[in-house]
């Protein structure tokens, strides 16, 4: 099973959607690649990923996250990498936002749209968050 994911949004909820599916797929013997673009780059930004915003007006969910003992985004990122999930940061967005490869977690690769399309063309499913 090959899964290609586009992460294009940078909120806390977006991060959970992306990394929960990614780790679950990788733990189920899936080959997973995530293309981070636009605000999605926040999800693998060394500092940014630890301070992802809740959607406006949903801040009260913070307590629920704690109560449900949901892993932190940092933990999910580490877990994803350990399970072999491949991270691709979008070069064009990095240029626009003035970001360097070093701003992202170790192991992140940089590529363009064709890099993603190349891996998505033979994926069994492509998900966009």
């Amino acid at each position: 099973m090959k899964v290609a994911i586009i992460a294009a949004n940078g909120g806390l909820f977006d991060a959970y959607k992306v990394f929960n599916i990614a780790t679950a797929a990788a733990a189920t013997d899936g080959e997973v690649e995530i293309f981070f673009t636009f605000e999605g780059l926040n999800l693998i930004h060394r500092q940014g990923m630890n301070a992802l915003p809740m959607p406006e007006g949903k801040e009260h969910f913070a307590e629920g996250f704690q109560k449900a003992n949901v892993p932190s985004i940092g933990e999910l990122v580490a877990m994803s990498q350990e399970l072999g999930v491949k991270f691709i940061a979008c070069q064009m967005t990095m240029d626009v936002m003035g970001l360097q490869k070093e701003d992202f977690v170790d192991g992140t690769e940089v590529g363009g749209a064709v890099t993603f399309l190349g891996s998505a063309k033979d994926a069994d499913m492509t998900l966009t968050f």
């Binding site: 929960n20 780790t23 679950a24 733990a27 189920t28 449900a68 003992n69 892993p71 877990m79 399970l83």
Partner: peptide, 13 residues
């Protein structure tokens, strides 16, 4: 125990 999705699956793997 106490862990939520996707951790039980990840740990099981």
């Amino acid at each position: 125990k106490g862990l939520s999705c996707p951790m039980p699956v990840v740990r099981t793997k």
